[in-house]
């Protein structure tokens, strides 16, 4: 089981979002760290086949990212996504299961099992428009797992989850990572430091660190914050993403949530 990202780049008009990135990912949880605008979401979209790279190729066990076979082993939770407000949670899960090619009976069984896993079994018949942000996020996580994906891509999955849910989610991902490749992006170190077998750190479209984080003096968070401060001093945050870097920095330093 191997995801091969071969010299992948994404160039926009005057910005390189991802710069010649090469990676080989295998079974286990891989955490992708990086501040806003570092290129995490762009890379993940390319891995999921919804954004075409400017250069390079992506394949899973030899299957190109553009094929149905590739998509059939893929589970994806985007960073910012919507729902069908008039669907119930169960309708949504069944619809997504159909899209993933699951047969009706196994789809229902799997949907019920996952809704239970994310503690939404009691709300499965309710319209999604009545769900809170956290419930929607949990529903998103559940749909990503419907097809027992061999490749699970999670873009900032813990946003909107409360501390208890966050812990449950980490355990769930660690479990999935035993059988699958899990690529999990975040800008919160604590989300991945205990469950990730491998950590990638992205900055300005490039991978600046690839390892298990154990060899880092002062720990992963210290290293990450150093990189973050450097970037902030260079004024990179505002220039690259347009977001308020100061707020983000305060958020990181204030704790791990």
């Amino acid at each position: 089981m191997e995801l091969f990202i071969d010299r992948v780049s994404k160039q926009y008009q005057n910005k390189t979002a991802v710069d010649r990135t090469t990676l080989k990912l295998h079974k286990g949880v891989c955490g992708l760290l990086g501040a806003n605008g570092a290129g995490k979401t762009t890379l993940m979209r390319m891995i999921c086949g919804i954004l075409k790279p400017s250069g390079g190729t992506i394949s899973f066990d030899g299957e190109d990212v553009s094929t149905e076979e590739y998509r059939s082993v893929l589970g994806y939770l985007p960073q910012d996504f919507g729902y069908y407000p008039n669907f119930s949670g169960m309708d949504f899960m069944m619809y997504m299961a159909t899209l993933k090619g699951l047969e009706k009976h196994s789809a229902r069984r799997k949907a019920e099992e996952l809704l239970r896993l994310v503690s939404l079994e009691g709300a499965s018949g309710k319209k999604i428009r009545t769900y809170s942000g956290g419930m929607k996020q949990r529903l998103g996580i559940a749909q990503a797992l419907l097809n027992d994906p061999a490749l699970l891509v999670l873009d900032e999955p813990t946003a909107g989850l409360d501390p208890r849910e966050r812990v449950r989610f980490r355990n769930l991902i660690a479990e999935v990572g035993k059988e699958s490749i899990v690529l999990l992006s975040t800008h919160i170190v604590s989300d991945i430091e205990h469950i990730a077998d491998r950590i990638l750190l992205m900055k300005d479209g490039r991978m600046i660190y690839d390892g298990d984080g154990k060899e880092l003096e002062g720990g992963l968070e210290e290293f990450y914050l150093e990189q973050f401060d450097e970037a902030q001093e260079e004024g990179g945050w505002k220039n690259t993403s347009g977001r308020k870097g100061g707020q983000d920095a305060a958020f990181f330093k204030s704790g791990k949530i």
């Binding site: 919804i50 985007p78 749909q143």
Partner: peptide, 8 residues
């Protein structure tokens, strides 16, 4: 982005 990454 949810539907386009699915097999069907």
């Amino acid at each position: 982005q949810l539907i386009l990454v699915t097999a069907k």
